[in-house]
Design a protein around this nucleic acid. Structure first.
Length: 587
RNA sequence: GCCCCCGUAGCUCAGCGGAUAGAGCACCGGCCUCCGGAGCCGGGUGCGCUGGUUCGAGUCCAGCCGGGGGCGCCA
C-alpha cells in the first residue's frame, strides 16, 4: 500500500478499537514527528483514564514495527510517529514503480453526475462561467482518476421566454447577419440588440410573446430558427472550451429544452403526491423551514400564473432524469453561491416527492465571486462584465510577453512558444481559481497569478520543467543516467536511499499524494490538491538546493536522487493534469 | 425584517477540535565560482468583538459588528 496515511490509520484503528471500538485515532501530520495521533486525549473522559495511560496502551498494542522507527507518547497524550527510513525507502520505491503513483482506485465506484459550466444560448460567457467550468472540470478529472464513473452535464440555458425576443430579432436582422454575429462570438451585441428592441418597441414585444407560444407549441419554422441560435452558440461555447482546455463536449449538453417535455409530468406528479398548492395563481410547493420577507412560507414556484414553467420545474425534472435515467448515485452541482437557497429547496422538494432517494447524495458545490483588485465584482473599465474569451486571450498574450521578457523563448520554436504560452496563461488563470477555497470570493490579479514565484500555476509548471531539464542533461551527459531514468519509469533496478534530511522531507511529501487527492475529492475542493502540489514543489526546491543530483557523491546516491526527482516530476505533471493544467516539458 | 456565505500578518491566502497559528508577495539583511537565480537562509504576538461548549477553540454554538449575496412568478 503506497498510501501511507491510509496504512497508518488502519494500524492505529486496530489499536484504538481494542480500547474503545470505533474510536477515531485522529491521525494528523505533525510538526514534531511525521504524524501524530491525538485520539487518546478524546478517549480519556469516555474511558475515565488519564490520557497518557491510554496513549501508552495504544503505543504498546499498535502494530507499527515495520513502519515506524519511533512511536512515543508526548505532551498530554499525543502519540508521535516517526516513519522508519527503510519504510520510507520501500514506499517510495513502490510508488515510483506504480503507474498510478500509489493512488488506488476506489473500492466503491459511484456514478457521479457533475453538472457545470451552464452558459446561456445567445449570451456571452463571462467570469462566472469560468469558475463553474474550471472547478467542475477538475472535479470530473479527479473523480475519474479514482475510478468513479463520471457523467458530465452542461445544463445550458436554451429555452424559455427570452427566446421569443431572440428569435424575433433573428427574423429582423436576417439569418445570415445573425449567424455571422454569433459565429464571431458577438453574443453580447446580439442579445443586447434584441433586448433593446424588446424594451423600446411594443410591436416587437408583442411579436416576441407570440413567438414564445409558437416555440412552446412546437411550430416547425420557429423551432428551426431556435435551432440556428442554439447551434451557433454551441459552436462558440466549444471554442471557449477549447481555449480553456476542458473535457466538456457537445455530448455533455443537456439543456433546459431537453427537460422541457418532462415538465407537465413533474407538475402532475407533485399534484398526485399532494405537495402542490395554488398561490396567487401559481402552482407551488412549500418545503418546510423556508420563509420570505414577511415571515410567510416561501414557495418553490413550479408553474407560473401565466401557465409557463419556472426554472424550479426544470431543476426538479433534471433530478428525476439524473436518478432514474442516468442512474446517478451522487449529483454535484457546480453552481454559484447565490443559488444556494434555490438548490436547497429543489433538493428538499425532490426528497419530499421521493425523486431523490436517501442513498443518492445531491451536493451544491458552491463557489464565490471573482473580484477585481478593487475588491468589487470584476468588470471592464466600461463597467460591463468581462468576456471570458477576452480574459483567456489576454492571459495567453501576457504569458507570451513574460516569456519573451525572460529570454526563455529563444530555445523554443515558434510553435512551442505558442503552446507554452497557452499552457502558462491558461494554467495561471485556472490555478488562481482552483487554489483558493472555492466558497470564498477571490481577487483576480494578473500580476500575481502569472508570477513565477509563490503559489501559482507557473511556479508549479516551472518546478516540473526544471526537473525534466535535469533528465535532458543527464541524457546528454551519460548513457547510464538515461538508462537509470528508464529503469525508474519501469521500477526495475532502481535504488532508493534516504540519506539527507532534504531527501527524507521530499520522500515524505511524495507519499502524501494519494491522501491529498482523497481530501480534494471528499470535500469537492481542488484547492486541497493545489496546496499539496505547492508544498511538494517547495520541498523539492529545498532538496534541489542541497542535494546535487547529477553530481551526487556516489552512484547509488545519484540513482536514488534521480528516482526522487523523477517521481516528483510525475506527481507534479499528473497532479496538475487532474486540475486540468498542462505541464510543459520545457518552458 | 429573515436566511446563507465570508472576516487570520501591510497585501493575497493556508490552517481537516490538538502542542509555539503558517506560506507567498512586499520590505530589510545575509548566502551562493553548483544540475535552469523564476534560487537558498534569516528577520513577524495577526485569528472582527463578547460570551458559551470542551482536557484543549482561528476551527464548534449563541449574540453583536463589518463586507457580500439571497428572499413568488427572470434563469
Amino acid at each position: 500500500m503506497a498510501d501511507v496515511t491510509a496504512l497508518l490509520a488502519e494500524r492505529l484503528q486496530a489499536a484504538f478499537d481494542a480500547l474503545a471500538p470505533g474510536a477515531d485515532p485522529v491521525l494528523r501530520p505533525s510538526d514534531r514527528a511525521d504524524f501524530q495521533a491525538n485520539g487518546a486525549l478524546a478517549l480519556a473522559r469516555q474511558l475515565g483514564r488519564p490520557p497518557r495511560e491510554i496513549a501508552d496502551a495504544v503505543v504498546a498494542s499498535a502494530q507499527l514495527g515495520d513502519v515506524c522507527e519511533r512511536v512515543e507518547v508526548s505532551g498530554p497524550g499525543f502519540v508521535n510517529l516517526v516513519l522508519s527510513r527503510s519504510f520510507v525507502e520501500r514506499s517510495i520505491r513502490e510508488m515510483a514503480a506504480d503507474p498510478r503513483l500509489g493512488v488506488e482506485r476506489t473500492g466503491t465506484p459511484e456514478r457521479v453526475v457533475v453538472t457545470y459550466s451552464h452558459p446561456n444560448v445567445a449570451k456571452e460567457m463571462h467570469v462566472g462561467h469560468l469558475r463553474s467550468t474550471v472547478i467542475g472540470d477538475a472535479l470530473c478529472r479527479m473523480l475519474e482518476h479514482l475510478g468513479h464513473e463520471v457523467v458530465r452535464e452542461n445544463h445550458i440555458g436554451d429555452w424559455g421566454t427570452p427566446f421569443g425576443m431572440l428569435i424575433e430579432h433573428l427574423v429582423d436582422v436576417g439569418e445570415e447577419t445573425a449567424v455571422a454575429e454569433l459565429s464571431v462570438g458577438d453574443l453580447t451585441g446580439f442579445y443586447q440588440a434584441a433586448r433593446e428592441s424588446f424594451d423600446r418597441d411594443d410591436d416587437f414585444k408583442e411579436r416576441s410573446r407570440r413567438r414564445v407560444v409558437l416555440l412552446q407549441s412546437g411550430d416547425p419554422e420557429t423551432l428551426r430558427r431556435w435551432m440556428v441560435l442554439v447551434e451557433h452558440s454551441i459552436c462558440y461555447f466549444d471554442e471557449v472550451y477549447a481555449k480553456l482546455g476542458v473535457l466538456l463536449t457537445d455530448g455533455d449538453i443537456k439543456g433546459e429544452s431537453y427537460y422541457n417535455p418532462m415538465l407537465p409530468q413533474v407538475v402532475k406528479d407533485l399534484e398526485t403526491a399532494g405537495l402542490l398548492v395554488e398561490d396567487g395563481g401559481a402552482l407551488c410547493v412549500f418545503p418546510p423551514g423556508y420563509t420570505n420577507r414577511e415571515g410567510n412560507p416561501l414557495p418553490l414556484i413550479v408553474q407560473k400564473s401565466d401557465g409557463g414553467f419556472g426554472y424550479a420545474a426544470t431543476d426538479l425534472a433534471s433530478v428525476r432524469d439524473r436518478v432514474d435515467v442516468v442512474g446517478a448515485t451522487r449529483i454535484l452541482y457546480v453552481v454559484g453561491a447565490p443559488q444556494a437557497q434555490h438548490l436547497q429547496m429543489v433538493f428538499e422538494v425532490s426528497r419530499m416527492a421521493g425523486w431523490l432517494p436517501a442513498g443518492v447524495g445531491a451536493v451544491h458545490v458552491l463557489f464565490g465571486s471573482v473580484l477585481g483588485t478593487d475588491h468589487r465584482m470584476l468588470r471592464t473599465r466600461a463597467g460591463t462584465s468581462v468576456k471570458l474569451v477576452d480574459l483567456l486571450d489576454e492571459a495567453v498574450s501576457r504569458a507570451a510577453a513574460a516569456m519573451a521578457e525572460r529570454g526563455r523563448d529563444a530555445e523554443l520554436s515558434r510553435e512551442e512558444q505558442q503552446s507554452v504560452a497557452t499552457a502558462l496563461g491558461i494554467g495561471a488563470v485556472k490555478y488562481a481559481d482552483l487554489s483558493t477555497d472555492r466558497v470564498r470570493d477571490y481577487v483576480f490579479d494578473w500580476q500575481r497569478m502569472l508570477s513565477f514565484e509563490g503559489d501559482t500555476g507557473p511556479y508549479l509548471q516551472y518546478a516540473h520543467a526544471r526537473i525534466r531539464s535535469i533528465f535532458r542533461r543527464a541524457a546528454s551527459e551519460t548513457t547510464s543516467a538515461e538508462e537509470a531514468g528508464a529503469d525508474l519509469r519501469t521500477g526495475e533496478g532502481s535504488t532508493l536511499v534516504i540519506g539527507t534530511p532534504e531527501e527524507r522531507a521530499l520522500g515524505i511529501s511524495l507519499l502524501g499524494y494519494a491522501a491529498a487527492i482523497a481530501a480534494a475529492v471528499d470535500e469537492s475542493s481542488p484547492s486541497k490538491l493545489c496546496a499539496y502540489l505547492y508544498a511538494l514543489a517547495t520541498t523539492f526546491t529545498a532538496f534541489y538546493e542541497r542535494c546535487p543530483v547529477l553530481r551526487a557523491p556516489d552512484e547509488e546516491s545519484k540513482q536514488s536522487r534521480l528516482a526522487l526527482a523523477e517521481t516528483t516530476a510525475r506527481v507534479l505533471a499528473e497532479g496538475l493534469g487532474l486540475l486540468g493544467i498542462e505541464a510543459p516539458e520545457q518552458m
